Amino acid sequence: MSIQHFRVALIPFFAAFCLPVFAHPETLVKVKDAEDQLGARVGYIELDLNSGKILESFRPEERFPMMSTFKVLLCGAVLSRVDAGQEQLGRRIHYSQNDLVKYSPVTEKHLTDGMTVRELCSAAITMSDNTAANLLLTTIGGPKELTAFLHNMGDHVTRLDRWEPELNEAIPNDERDTTMPAAMATTLRKLLTGELLTLASRQQLIDWMEADKVAGPLLRSALPAGWFIADKSGAGERGSRGIIAALGPDGKPSRIVVIYTTGSQATMDERNRQIAEIGASLIKHW
């Protein structure tokens, strides 16, 4: 068994979910400061990975656009189908120029040979490839089937209604394609530690997140040497930005962190900087 497989195998399969305990108010002060700096709502939650206990939260039950963070949930649904014998990671999917949508850096290079389901999930999570996400959504039956998958695992909040790139529209008070920080954190924890997926599929999902190549300016920029992070970022219209992550010291994950913001006029660089500063405070007061 590899070190990575050993790491995931040791994560307990508890489903406990406790009331908020504000253990590190310094980080919450930074979250509130980020709201002021961005002129926007910021949602934040931090869960203990083992117990599910809420360590910190701010606007945990307010809706925020999911943006590309939904791609982790999508690949979780795909892996669930693989575990059930309904899908194969090695199955090759062919597509055409007409299937390509905005921001598809991986799929646009494989119009001739197509891509396997495994490769599409990797592209969707590590590079946030939008066409890969749409092709994967098609394999499970579309956005409503992803919502149904989430409902079946106990998440009655998170919903996907549209395809890429329309799902990033982020209209105020529009519940389409949204989640809440508390719901997303709990669902991510179930996918990474629960019995919904096999150990091999849980390991595959966290491996894809660990290999994320487009979230460098966010939490990763604040991470000390030797820390572990597996994450997925998202960006949308109307100043929307977000990240979901499993992270921790000593090379293994010990907490789930979810950060969303929407409604800002700030630049992407400024949104990234504020999320990175929240991450720096989190690590400082770990």
Rank of each mutant, 00 (worst) to 15 (best):
residue 220 R to H: 03
residue 268 M to D: 07
residue 189 R to H: 08
residue 76 G to Q: 01
residue 67 M to L: 10
residue 89 L to I: 08
residue 163 W to Q: 10
residue 93 I to T: 04
residue 247 L to T: 07
residue 42 V to A: 06
residue 247 L to A: 05
residue 152 N to I: 10
residue 249 P to W: 04
residue 62 E to D: 13
residue 80 S to E: 13
residue 69 T to G: 01
residue 244 I to P: 00
residue 166 E to R: 14
residue 200 A to R: 13
residue 286 W to V: 01
residue 84 A to D: 14
residue 89 L to K: 04
residue 138 T to R: 14
residue 115 M to S: 04
residue 76 G to V: 03
residue 15 A to V: 15
residue 90 G to T: 11
residue 163 W to T: 12
residue 252 K to S: 14
residue 187 T to F: 05
residue 81 R to E: 07
residue 161 D to E: 09
residue 82 V to W: 06
residue 87 E to W: 04
residue 185 A to T: 11
residue 59 R to S: 08
residue 3 I to L: 14
residue 201 S to G: 11
residue 228 F to S: 07
residue 243 I to Y: 07
residue 250 D to G: 13
residue 158 T to I: 02
residue 13 F to S: 08
residue 188 L to Y: 08
residue 50 N to S: 14
residue 267 T to N: 11
residue 65 P to L: 02
residue 93 I to R: 02
residue 156 H to Y: 10
residue 251 G to E: 11
residue 180 M to R: 12
residue 248 G to R: 00
residue 172 P to Y: 11
residue 161 D to A: 05
residue 125 I to G: 00
residue 268 M to Y: 06
residue 165 P to G: 06
residue 107 T to G: 04
residue 121 C to R: 00
residue 186 T to K: 14
residue 158 T to D: 00
residue 38 L to C: 08
residue 250 D to R: 13
residue 286 W to L: 09
residue 165 P to L: 08
residue 259 I to F: 08
residue 126 T to L: 08
residue 228 F to Y: 07
residue 187 T to G: 10
residue 256 I to L: 09
residue 159 R to G: 03
residue 144 K to M: 14
residue 229 I to M: 08
residue 238 R to P: 10
residue 232 K to L: 00
residue 135 L to T: 07
residue 250 D to N: 10
residue 149 F to L: 10
residue 198 T to A: 09
residue 173 N to V: 11
residue 168 N to K: 02
residue 251 G to A: 12
residue 174 D to C: 06
residue 270 E to D: 14
residue 130 N to S: 04
residue 222 A to N: 14
residue 253 P to L: 09
residue 14 F to W: 06
residue 143 P to S: 05
residue 113 D to N: 11
residue 222 A to H: 13
residue 176 R to T: 06
residue 82 V to Y: 07
residue 268 M to C: 05
residue 78 V to E: 02
residue 263 G to T: 06
residue 157 V to D: 15
residue 148 A to D: 12
residue 166 E to L: 14
residue 188 L to S: 05
residue 252 K to Q: 11
residue 66 M to G: 06
residue 244 I to C: 08
residue 168 N to H: 02
residue 266 A to Q: 07
residue 72 V to C: 05
residue 160 L to D: 02
residue 237 E to Q: 15
residue 189 R to S: 14
residue 254 S to E: 14
residue 170 A to T: 10
residue 217 P to L: 09
residue 220 R to K: 05
residue 143 P to E: 04
residue 95 Y to S: 02
residue 63 R to S: 07
residue 272 N to D: 05
residue 182 A to P: 07
residue 175 E to S: 14
residue 243 I to E: 02
residue 281 S to A: 13
residue 33 D to G: 13
residue 67 M to V: 13
residue 140 I to H: 03
residue 83 D to C: 02
residue 189 R to G: 13
residue 162 R to C: 09
residue 186 T to I: 11
residue 180 M to I: 13
residue 131 T to R: 01
residue 184 M to R: 00
residue 89 L to H: 05
residue 14 F to L: 07
residue 170 A to R: 09
residue 254 S to A: 15
residue 13 F to V: 10
residue 279 G to S: 08
residue 66 M to T: 06
residue 246 A to R: 01
residue 73 L to R: 00
residue 149 F to V: 09
residue 238 R to A: 10
residue 91 R to E: 05
residue 173 N to P: 08
residue 248 G to W: 01
residue 117 V to L: 15
residue 94 H to A: 09
residue 91 R to W: 04
residue 183 A to Q: 15
residue 227 W to L: 00
residue 3 I to M: 09
residue 85 G to D: 13
residue 95 Y to G: 02
residue 218 L to G: 03
residue 182 A to R: 15
residue 244 I to V: 14
residue 250 D to V: 10
residue 188 L to C: 09
residue 59 R to A: 04
residue 53 K to E: 14
residue 167 L to C: 15
residue 219 L to P: 04
residue 180 M to N: 15
residue 81 R to W: 05
residue 243 I to V: 12
residue 67 M to I: 07
residue 236 G to E: 02
residue 285 H to D: 06
residue 15 A to C: 13
residue 47 L to R: 02
residue 56 E to G: 14
residue 266 A to D: 11
residue 245 A to G: 11
residue 233 S to E: 00
residue 77 A to E: 06
residue 221 S to M: 10
residue 93 I to G: 01
residue 88 Q to I: 09
residue 283 I to G: 03
residue 97 Q to G: 15
residue 230 A to V: 05
residue 268 M to L: 10
residue 29 V to M: 09
residue 277 E to G: 10
residue 226 G to E: 13
residue 271 R to A: 09
residue 249 P to I: 06
residue 256 I to S: 01
residue 232 K to N: 00
residue 224 P to W: 02
residue 120 L to F: 03
residue 194 G to A: 09
residue 158 T to A: 05
residue 131 T to N: 02
residue 107 T to R: 00
residue 88 Q to A: 12
residue 239 G to E: 01
residue 175 E to C: 12
residue 267 T to E: 12
residue 194 G to S: 15
residue 218 L to Y: 01
residue 174 D to A: 04
residue 280 A to G: 12
residue 246 A to T: 14
residue 243 I to C: 09
residue 156 H to R: 14
residue 177 D to Y: 01
residue 124 A to G: 06
residue 165 P to A: 07
residue 223 L to Q: 05
residue 237 E to V: 10
residue 3 I to N: 13
residue 255 R to H: 04
residue 146 L to P: 00
residue 160 L to Y: 01
residue 219 L to G: 02
residue 28 L to W: 13
residue 214 V to M: 09
residue 217 P to W: 05
residue 143 P to G: 04
residue 35 E to G: 04
residue 258 V to T: 06
residue 55 L to V: 13
residue 212 D to N: 09
residue 69 T to A: 01
residue 134 N to I: 02
residue 55 L to A: 07
residue 176 R to C: 09
residue 200 A to F: 08
residue 178 T to I: 03
residue 222 A to W: 07
residue 206 I to V: 14
residue 126 T to D: 08
residue 251 G to R: 10
residue 231 D to V: 03
residue 187 T to E: 02
residue 182 A to E: 15
